[in-house]
Design a protein around this nucleic acid. Structure first.
Lengths: 330, 330
DNA sequence: TTGAAAGCGCTACCAT
DNA sequence: ATGGTAGCGCTTTCAA
């Protein structure tokens, strides 16, 4: 089905058909109606590829935006992904997905993406090195990363203010009158964990508390939380409250307390997580947590992309969005 | 960056560049090397849009495949989605995502998709009526649905053999010597729930057991499971085992038993779920379940698409893949 | 094996 | 407001 087919069907020119599908083009309303009706009947839709091809370079635009991600099993990632794809569609963009398993593939993958003329790339991969994105820079392909800023500040990024997240967690535990506090770290080299710990620790010392006891889970998942709690049970028994670097860690720890340690939460130990994934609200957990402001983050990402499309490269930055406290049972 | 730019850079023709990127084209190996090297240096990648445009209709192909889905918060969906996108990429296809919130949007959405020249559509939306896909049929856009067959058998589909899933669950509970059994239904009108119940019930009567007591949760999520268990506590107390239409339902029920009913699982009540989502293996749940054969289903989906691309419409069918039992603590 | 040229479906610019 | 036409980047004949 092509524009010519439709044109022939209604007895008008190809140009007329094109205009009927172009917002604000000079065409008689009646004719536009007739053309649109015929198109609907014939199942015609302008070929976006051809359209992009013929549009002048200046405002060429495929409306395709790539989302790069490496892990869906992570509940926070899939939650973020839901919001991201919805927002993208709402603003008229079509999300393309790239599931990147190995960092080495990245340059190659981005090159392929450029073959699809994507308008921009959103990278949701906290653990990937910024160096991997050199190809985007080289192709001057608009890019925004989420969850991790480029060390050299050359890539626009959006992330939670992790330092603030640590402060909030500390504030909550301190207000409960607790003093012996701990922090469960995800990846030891993870920027997020490091910053959360910094905010947490600073807040404690400011309030004349002791520095937190740090437990190393090594990863951010449920199992890691369960395992670290089982392994470090003695440490946990001496604590009054812990801040976990992710909700999944907190939930694993919680279950270990319940089933292995027979440690009552929140009576003997208060637990606060970070992310506010849907499961945190489950009646079985009722986990208090520091909520990542997902909606705000998504809005910030779109705005950063928008700026790049408008050529406002000067105003780009590492955006940090404020998290908030969600208090539940733990 | 266009083929002409690369051609100029190496002092050859556009045609040569095109051939360098075409598998098995007639070109001197040395020249191909030079061109490929130059392309890499310049960050050139053939424009897939233009390529699709110029390729003869017969084997025209964008390598774009759309995935339609309506809910990512569902853990089974995101798990399935992970597998699907990976498999697609592995076979050289690029997944495009369409998050469909409202069924009415569907026709419109599919039309838009056709504008992107997608090679096929995979619909992962159990709860959408088959009628919504008329647009695909009209455009003769290859389509495969997952999780729900078209009543009239006109749309190729892949799903778990839900009847068999019910049988497996029954078999497990009967082998444990239990007789007073129940079934927790998700959506009362959901095909999956109905079939699972049928298999479950038939297996029970075959073994001379009573027909199962049916509890209606109304939805498939965690909260629905928690609520139905709390509401129907008295019924639950009289049962020895329940089969839940989804893992999320089972987990909600489990938590309600633990926290509200003080009912010991598995001693007083055995619970078996359906799906085998990652959370089912969490130490806090250790949920026995009927596993959906996700890898097999994904393979079947790709194979059905492949057949449509080869024009083998005669061999299409509603594929049913066998589930398997995963026994854990409950 | 190679370069020239036609044409894929479309939009944008011409004239009218 | 309308129809004709050039040309977007590419693949593919066709000659050579």
């Amino acid at each position: 089905m092509t524009a010519s087919d439709v044109a022939a069907h209604v007895g008008l020119s190809r140009s007329a058909v094109s205009r009927a599908f172009t917002e604000g083009a000079s065409i008689h309303p009646d004719k536009r109606q007739r053309i649109l009706a015929a198109a609907k009947e014939l199942g015609y839709q302008p070929n976006f590829f051809a359209r992009t091809l013929s549009t002048p370079a200046q405002r060429k635009c495929s409306n395709l935006v790539a989302i790069l991600t490496s892990d869906f099993s992570n509940p926070y990632q899939s939650y973020l992904f839901e919001e991201l794809s919805t927002a993208l569609q709402l603003s008229g963009k079509q999300p393309m997905l790239l599931n990147v398993k190995q960092a080495e593939d990245l340059d190659q993958a981005i090159l392929r993406l450029s073959g699809y003329q994507v308008d921009g790339v959103i990278a949701v991969m906290g653990s990937l090195p910024a160096a991997s994105f050199s190809q985007c820079l080289k192709l001057s392909l608009p890019l925004v990363t989420m969850g991790r800023a480029d060390e050299r500040g050359r890539i626009p990024s959006v992330q939670t203010d992790n330092y603030r997240a640590g402060q909030l967690a500390a504030q909550h535990l301190l207000e409960a009158g607790l003093t012996r506090l701990g922090f469960v770290c995800g990846r030891a080299d993870g920027q997020a964990s490091i910053e959360r710990l910094a905010g947490f620790g600073d807040a404690l010392t400011e309030h004349r508390g002791d520095a937190p006891q740090v437990l190393h889970a090594g990863r951010y998942g449920y199992s890691a939380g369960f395992e670290v709690a089982t392994r470090e049970l003695e440490v946990l028994r001496r604590l009054e409250g812990v801040f976990c670097a992710s909700d999944a860690l907190a939930m694993g720890l919680l279950d270990s307390c319940r089933e292995v340690a027979n440690l009552n939460v929140p009576r003997q130990l208060r637990v606060i997580g970070c992310d506010d994934v849907p499961q945190a609200a489950w009646q079985g957990y009722q986990l208090s947590t520091v909520a990542q402001p997902v909606a705000d983050m998504v809005a910030a990402v779109l705005s950063l992309l928008e700026k790049q499309w408008q050529g406002l490269h000067s105003e780009l930055a590492a955006v940090r969005v404020a998290p908030s406290l969600v208090l539940r049972r733990t």
